[in-house]
Amino acid sequence: MQDLIELLISATAGGCIYALFALSYLVVLRPTGVINFAVGDWGTVAAFGGFLALSEAALPWPIGMAFVIIAAFGLGWLTERIAVRPLVERGAPVLAPILALLGMLVIFREAVSVAFGPDPRPIPQPFGYGRIEFGLLAASYQSIFIIGITASVFVGAWYFFERTLAGRSFEAVALDRRAAALMGINLRRVTSFAFGAGASIAALAALLLTPNTSAHYLMGIPLAIQGFTALVIGGVGRTEGALVGGIILALAEQLTMRYVPIAPGLVQGVPLLLLIIFLLVRPTGLLAARGASA
């Protein structure tokens, strides 16, 4: 029983990572309509930033983390300036920035591979390898740290999108760019901020993940797949959807790995399977957008 609870907690922590990547997609998708497959590789770049700050420079965790997240905001801002804004302002079809971001994905990945080589790089654990056992409850410190941080990020994101004027302006831009601009919303600023925030969230997720897995230049694509699958499961209409989808995906993966007798690598098939099931059965995701559902 304790064993099962520990599994569920570590799966939830894994799901939180997927949820953060899903949120990173969502923050960009809401105001721009652009699906940014480079989220995973924002994470890769940030993970190596974490390696430099936390392993090489041995900064204390909170400082190193703040440093990487702020730098990631700059990276996201730069990504938008290079690969998105020129196309949007020219009135190119929405496919063009998506392809340009795929180009950025490859550039990020290859730049990391040139700079750091193909070997995985370690990131220290913020709280060491300790774990707590309390009655039936058992979990590693890292799992609890991940769940706590993710919960606060989602509360913040929910508050931002639902309760603040700036967050509502994201929604307005998503609904109708022209009308939003006429209402005095600065489209450029909203788009820049969306990309910056998206990159910061991806960076946070990578920093939470890599103490367990190490930083590797190929880590981006699987995270991009899992994050987007989480988004499809939860539904793009609601901020909480990303969190629900991420946790469902991670639970499905962990329970498959534990109880289904297949080669461990084939667990990578779970996202594809869930994706296809959800696209067939419930294409709006579990949580339908407010107002859209009957």
Binding site: F37, I225, T229, G269
Partner: peptide, 10 residues
């Protein structure tokens, strides 16, 4: 795009 990305990985 996503489904085929996952398929390729799998």
């Amino acid at each position: 795009a996503l489904a085929t990305l996952a398929l390729a990985q799998l």
